[in-house]
Write a protein that binds this DNA or RNA. Structure first.
Lengths: 412, 412
DNA sequence: ACTGTTTACTCTAGGTAATGCACGAAAGCG
DNA sequence: CGCTTTCGTGCATTACCTAGAGTAAACAGT
C-alpha cells in the first residue's frame, strides 16, 4: 500500500468540502477548528476550491470588533453530477448539483425475465440518463461525472461487472460499453459501497472513522468504512454480511448456502416468516414484497398481533446479526438503510436494540450508535454521484496555490 | 483521522525494516524494487537505520562488472526487546534481539483461583522479566522496550486494562503499575492484536494488506489488519469473532450469550463435543484441555473413529465461522494460530477447506489464502515485542540525513 | 477624522518527505 | 591505465503542512 503526500492533500480536500457541504455557509476558522488543520492549510485548500469554482463566498459573519469572517459555501451551479442506481427491477437516475441536491430524477422499470443482457441494461442507463440530464437542462456531455451502481461484484478499477447473480453476468466490461455513449468520467461500483459513501459524506457517517451501513432490502449486505475511508477488501467484495451464518443448516439462501442472514431479515425472509406465522393472513401479497412490507408496517402500527409477531421475530434475528457485526468490527456507528429499513426500520430497530445486549459484548455495544438512515431520497444514487464527485476532486488542484481570491469586491 | 507526512515516513521505515528482516542480507536496489520506493528514498531510510545502529553492511553482491551492491542486514546485537504474554495460567516472557530472534525465555505459572489481583500479576510479570533479561545478559533497564499482552479489552493509548473477564478487572492502570518497576518504554495490548502484528511482520501477513489472524485456543478471536495496518475499531476491541453467532440459541458461552463460535471451536467446546460423542472416551481428560487436545490429535493420526468424528464435527463449525469472516472482510489471507491450531490445525483446516465452498461466496473465497501459523515459538510474545519495536522505530530518525555511512572500511 | 484594538485572512519562510539527476565510488575488462 | 558498468548518495526540485509575520477589515473611543 504505497502512500504518498498527495493522498493527504486529497483527503484534506475531501474533508474540507465535506464540512462545507454539511454545515452550509461556514467560515474558514470554523473549518480549521473542526478538522484540526491549520488555518493556513484550510485557507489554501479553500482557495483551491474557490479557484476551481466549486465554492463561492456568500457573505460575512460579524466577529465582534474585528474583520468579519467570510463565509464560503458550495457554488451549486458549478456543475452537475449524475448517480445511477441499477437494481433488478428498475434503473433510477438522479442529476445533482454540486451540493448534491437532486435536480432531476428519472426511473425506468426493468423486466427481469426479459431484460438481462448487458446491451439492454446499458440502453436503459443511457436513455434514462439522457432524459434526466435533459430535465435538468444539461446535455449528458455537460456533466462533471457519472457514478453507476450495479448489483453484484465489481472490479472498480477496470470498470467491469465481475459477477452479477441476478442477470448471470460474468466479466461484463460495463464501463467501456457505457463510455461508447457517455463522454464523461464514469465510476462503477455496487450499491453497498455507494450506500456507505453516501453516509460518510451526507449521513450518519460524517466525521466518523469506522462505519457499517446495513442495506436491508430484497438483498441484505453491509458497506464498511475503516479510518474514514470506504473499505473494499482484497477483491472489492467486503461487506457480504447478508451471507454470513445465522442459523446452522437453516433456510436455504439464494446464494446457495443455508441459514444466511439474508434469508431471515431480507424482504423475502420476512414474507416467509409471515407465511409461517399466519399462512392465510391478508397482509401477505404473494409475489409482491413491497406491498407485503407496506401492509406489515401499517398493521404493526395499528397493533395487529400477526404483524407484531412477525416484527418481533425478525428483530430477534436482526439483533443477532447486528451484534455479530459489532463484535467483529467495533464500529462507531451502524446505519440501517434501504427500503425495508425505511418502512419497518423503526419498530425493528426498537425491538432489536432491546435484544442486542444479549449478544453483543457490552463495551463495544455501548460505544456503537445504531441509527436509521436519515438521507432523503435514494442513498444509492446519491452515493454513486459521490463517487463522481470524489473523482472530480481528485483531478482538480495541483499548481494552483497563489493569490487565488485577490479581488474581493467587498461591500461598501 | 488526521494524517501527516510523518506517518508516511514511519510507514516506509517499517516497510524497509520488514523487508530486511524477512529477506536477510539484502541490497538497497532490491528493497527499492520491492517496495516501489525510489532508490534515493530507500538509501535515505537505510542510512537512518544504519545511523541508529539497527542495521549494518554485511557484505557485497557481485553485480556483473559494476560496483557491487552492498548488502544490509539487521545488526542483531543492536539491542534487545521483550515480549510478555500473560494468559490465564501463565506469564511467558521472551527476550529478543533486534532481528526478533529469541535469546531467552521464562515462564511462570499462574494459579487463576489464587492469583488474580493486579498486584500479583504485576509481580509475576516483573519477576519473570527480570529473570529472562538476566539470562539474556542484560539488565531490565537495558531493553529497548517491553511489549505486554494481557487478555481482555485494553485502552492502548492509556495503558489501561479496561476489562479482563478472567480476573474481573475493571480499568486497571497496568502500564503505570509496571512503569514503577520497569524504566523502559512499555506497550500494552491484547493477544489478538499481538498475534496479528506478529503475522504482519514475520508470518503469512508480510506484504499483505488485509489479514485476519484467528486465535484458536481456550478462547477464540480474530486479529484484523486493514490496508497493511492493524485494525482496532472504535474502542480497540475489533475482532471478537469468537463471540459471533454460530447457532441461534445454542450452547451457553462464557461471555453470557449463546451459540457463540467460541463455544463450538474453542478447546472447551471441542472437549464438550468429545463428551457428547463418546462420554466415556479415554481421550477425555477432565479438567485438562491441553491433554485432551493432545490425545485427540494423536488418536486422530492413528485413525481413531471417535477422534475423527470430533475433528470432522469441529471442522463443520469452523468452516462456517471462517466463511463468515471471509464474506464480511474479504481478506487476502486468513491465518490459524494459537495452541489448538498448532495441535489440531492441520486436520481441522483440511476438513474445513472442503466445506468452505458451501458457505463462503466463491469469488472472495477463491482469493483468500487460508494457512496455519508458521511462526516458531510463541506468536503472542513475538507480537508484543513487535509493538516495542514499532514504538522504537517511531522514535528514531528526524534530523539524521546527511553523510551517515561515510567511512566504509571496504575489503582490500 | 483619527487612532488604537480586535479579528480574519494571506504570505512567507521553514520543516518534512519523496524523487530525478548527476556525480563519485567501486568493481571488471581489455 | 583507461573504459565500461553498476551502485550509492548529495543536491535540487517538488509537494505537503504549519508557525508566525504581515495585511485587511471591521469597531470603539477620542
Amino acid at each position: 500500500m504505497k502512500r504518498t503526500s498527495r493522498d493527504i492533500r486529497v483527503a484534506n480536500r475531501f474533508e474540507v468540502l465535506r464540512r462545507i457541504l454539511g454545515a452550509g455557509p461556514v467560515a474558514r476558522q470554523e473549518i480549521a477548528a473542526d478538522t484540526g488543520l491549520s488555518l493556513a492549510t484550510v485557507s489554501n485548500l479553500v482557495g483551491e476550491l474557490l479557484q476551481a469554482d466549486l465554492l463561492e463566498e456568500v457573505g460575512y459573519q460579524d466577529s465582534g470588533g474585528g474583520r468579519p469572517r467570510a463565509l464560503v459555501a458550495v457554488r451549486r451551479s458549478a456543475g452537475m453530477l449524475a448517480g445511477v442506481d441499477v437494481a433488478e427491477t428498475y434503473v433510477h437516475v438522479e442529476i445533482f448539483d454540486t451540493a448534491l441536491r437532486v435536480l432531476a430524477s428519472v426511473e425506468e422499470p426493468l423486466h427481469p425475465s426479459q431484460e438481462s443482457s448487458p446491451a439492454q441494461i446499458v440502453a436503459h442507463i443511457v436513455s434514462s440518463l439522457r432524459a434526466a440530464a435533459d430535465r435538468a437542462g444539461v446535455g449528458p456531455e455537460g456533466l462533471m461525472g457519472v457514478g453507476v451502481s450495479v448489483p453484484g461484484q465489481i472490479d472498480r478499477a477496470g470498470g467491469v461487472s465481475v459477477f452479477a447473480p441476478n442477470w448471470d453476468w460474468h466479466d461484463v466490461p460495463l464501463r467501456a460499453q457505457l463510455a461508447e455513449h457517455i463522454g464523461v468520467p464514469l465510476y462503477l461500483d455496487n450499491p453497498l459501497r455507494a450506500g456507505v459513501l453516501a453516509e460518510l459524506w451526507f449521513g450518519a457517517g460524517r466525521g466518523r472513522d469506522d462505519v457499517a451501513v446495513l442495506t436491508l432490502g430484497t438483498g441484505v449486505g453491509a458497506g464498511l468504512a475503516v479510518r474514514g475511508q470506504l473499505y473494499r477488501g482484497a477483491t472489492n467484495s467486503a461487506g457480504e454480511w447478508g451471507h454470513t451464518n445465522l442459523v446452522m443448516d437453516g433456510r436455504p439462501c439464494r446464494c446457495g448456502s443455508h441459514g444466511c442472514v439474508e434469508a431471515y431479515v431480507g424482504a423475502p425472509g420476512i414474507m416467509a416468516r409471515l407465511r409461517e406465522i399466519a399462512p392465510d393472513s391478508p397482509l401477505l401479497r404473494p409475489g409482491d414484497q413491497t406491498a407485503t412490507i407496506d401492509a406489515l408496517a401499517s398493521a404493526y402500527h395499528a397493533g395487529d398481533p400477526v404483524a407484531t409477531a412477525v416484527v418481533a421475530e425478525t428483530a430477534r434475528y436482526l439483533a443477532v446479526a447486528i451484534a455479530d457485526l459489532i463484535n467483529i468490527l467495533n464500529p462507531e456507528v451502524v446505519v440501517l438503510s434501504s427500503w425495508v429499513a425505511a418502512k419497518l426500520g423503526e419498530p425493528l430497530l426498537a425491538r432489536a436494540r432491546a435484544l442486542l445486549g444479549r449478544h453483543a459484548l457490552s463495551r463495544p455495544l455501548a460505544n456503537t450508535e445504531i441509527v436509521l438512515c436519515r438521507i432523503e431520497g435514494n442513498p444509492v444514487s446519491l452515493g454513486a454521484a459521490t463517487f463522481a464527485l470524489e473523482g472530480y476532486l481528485e483531478r482538480i488542484g495541483g499548481q494552483v496555490t497563489a493569490a487565488a481570491t485577490r479581488p474581493r469586491g467587498h461591500r461598501r
